[in-house]
Amino acid sequence: MMAILYPRLLAGQAKPLHEEYRNLTINELTRRAASNHDSAVYVATGGDRVPETKLLELRRLLVDLAKESGFPNESNRELRAAFDLNIAATLHAEMGLVPAEAASGDVWAFIALVLLPDVAYWRYPVPPGDRVLGTDLTRHVFGRLWWRAQLVHSSDDPDPYAALKILGEAAFDQIYARRKALGNSPHLVKAILRLWNELDLREIDEREALRDLLKRLLRLTPFVLFESLSDQSLDAELRTAARETVTALLSTPTLTSHERQARIDAVFAGCSDGITDKASRSAPIPLDDNSLVRP
């Protein structure tokens, strides 16, 4: 199948539009929305240019989803979160992008500034440039959502995008910010999501736990080729790293050894096999409350 090529709005044209659009109303931006732009270009590689009818249909789909979350009126955090989840799945399912195209900020600048300026500036009123220009895909109003869907998409699942609901935006940003080592591997990201879905983190700062886990995985990257591991082996590696993370985070003098171990076991109670239980049995139990040292 040939790649679908999307129009690109280069920085020289995108920046002036952003400066103009940030001062316009949503209704004015709706009137500016278009499926083409005189300055748009296409990459000079093999592929079929996206038909204008497909761009118009994409706009219709995304505007309809935005309306479900209050567009063009003010929204709230819950509606915006639902909007992001729906947009992520729709962009990934409908655009037909290959990762090489999706990695281009100029593609996303066209989507935000030409095709959907009203939706983009409604989602982020008076946004900084990186929300619409494509200079940082971890922050782009649409680009970041496509990549979230790309990293979790599972074609074998009845709901291919179900894992989008496991981690919030801030957590995904932590993973994607480390994309050169971790975030470019859907295999690894899906394993992290499987693990996170099993853990009971109610007694732990989830954001701090994820940050610590990712640091441990980064230290493993010179020695472990995650892509080569089977799902079972990769899950075992991640559970081991997660147990180290949880142990470190619970290494406080306010807990006795038995209390600490009970809380660690509670975090992993929902794991689907006995790997972590086995690791727990083989791990030495500290003799006093201060004997565990944070890695």
Rank of each mutant, 00 (worst) to 15 (best):
Q150L: 05
D157E: 14
D173V: 09
D118Y: 11
Y176F: 10
Y161K: 01
A170N: 07
V152K: 00
D159Y: 00
D156H: 02
P125V: 07
L167W: 06
P127R: 14
P160L: 01
R123L: 13
R148G: 04
A177Q: 13
R148W: 10
D130F: 14
P117W: 06
R178N: 06
P125K: 09
D136C: 11
I166R: 01
V119G: 07
Q150N: 14
A171G: 05
A163I: 00
L151V: 06
V152Q: 01
R144L: 09
D156A: 05
L145Q: 11
A149T: 01
R139P: 04
E169A: 10
T138Y: 11
T135Q: 11
T138R: 13
D157Q: 03
R123Y: 14
P128E: 11
R131W: 13
L151M: 14
S154C: 08
D130R: 15
A163M: 07
V126Y: 10
L164V: 03
I175T: 00
D118L: 10
R178S: 08
K165M: 07
F142I: 09
V141K: 03
T135C: 08
Y161L: 03
Y176P: 01
V119W: 04
I175Q: 01
L164C: 03
A162T: 00
L151H: 03
G168S: 12
K165S: 15
D159L: 00
R131L: 14
W146Y: 15
R144F: 10
A163V: 00
L164S: 02
G168K: 08
K165A: 14
W122N: 07
R139T: 13
F172L: 00
T135K: 11
R139W: 13
R178H: 07
L113A: 08
W122E: 07
L133T: 05
Q174N: 06
A162R: 03
P125L: 04
F142T: 02
L164M: 07
L167I: 05
L167G: 03
F142N: 05
A149D: 04
I166D: 01
